[in-house]
Computed example of a mutant assay.
Amino acid sequence: MGQSSEDPSSARPARRRPTRAQTRQKVLDAALEVFGELGIQGGSLDAVAEAGQLSKGAIYSNFASKTELVLALVQENTLNRVGLGLEAVSHADGPVDALTMLSAAMTRALKGDQVRHRLVAELYILAHRDPQLAEALKVSRAEARAMGAETLRQGAALLGITLPMPAEHLIVVLIGLHNGLAMEYGIDDGSVPDDLFASVLVPTVLR
């Protein structure tokens, strides 16, 4: 029998290149690992590239600088909390149930994602000595508050309730509560009972 002229390599499945979104997420995951262990000042983009087995080009094609990457890590946490809020409302049996579910999800988040909260605290300190970082952080936090306020408005409309204050003000209160409880939990993990967030949120919103 004659040998087949078929190229053996043609039988192998073609390697699929990761999408831009997949690469971006891989950078964020590696950055969280590096900055979580070494801090913002101690970590570097070289270390992020090594941790994620990425090229420097893959990082710079998604983030222009270390500052932009760290801010994106913090912003990702905000997006996750927005998602928690919408999920709680969509699966709830009334306003009290929705706020209780949201409080439970936020409590799990603040206890389970201490790394990002430490990054926020470090950013706050660094920004006081770096005007450029301070301005970038100001813009990032304004975007986070805007997303949170819009989520509050959507949730209130779905639940048929009136917020006790403008959404732009309420989101500042909730972010402050969340970040403050996260800091206290990080210092003393017995200081934040599981129902503490709900005991504040439910009567505040439904007063």
Rank of each mutant, 00 (worst) to 15 (best):
R153M: 12
E150C: 05
H128Q: 15
L181F: 11
L159S: 10
V173K: 03
T151I: 04
H128R: 15
A127Q: 05
G186S: 05
I175Q: 05
F197Q: 00
L159V: 11
V173W: 06
P193A: 07
L163A: 00
I171F: 01
P193V: 05
E135W: 15
L181Q: 07
G190K: 10
L126K: 12
H128T: 14
P164E: 02
K138I: 12
G155N: 10
R145M: 08
L126R: 15
K138S: 15
L133S: 14
V173M: 09
A156L: 05
V192P: 00
V139Y: 08
D195E: 15
D130P: 14
V173T: 08
Y185H: 09
D194W: 06
M165R: 13
V192Y: 00
L163N: 02
P164D: 03
S191L: 12
I187L: 04
L174N: 02
A156I: 07
D194K: 08
Q132W: 11
T151C: 07
R153E: 14
T151D: 06
E184Q: 10
D189W: 03
L159F: 11
G190I: 09
A142E: 14
E143G: 08
R153N: 13
M183C: 08
F197P: 00
M183I: 10
D130W: 13
D194P: 05
G190P: 07
E143T: 09
I175A: 09
I171A: 01
G155K: 07
A146W: 11
T162L: 02
R153L: 15
S191P: 07
L174R: 01
S140V: 10
A144W: 02
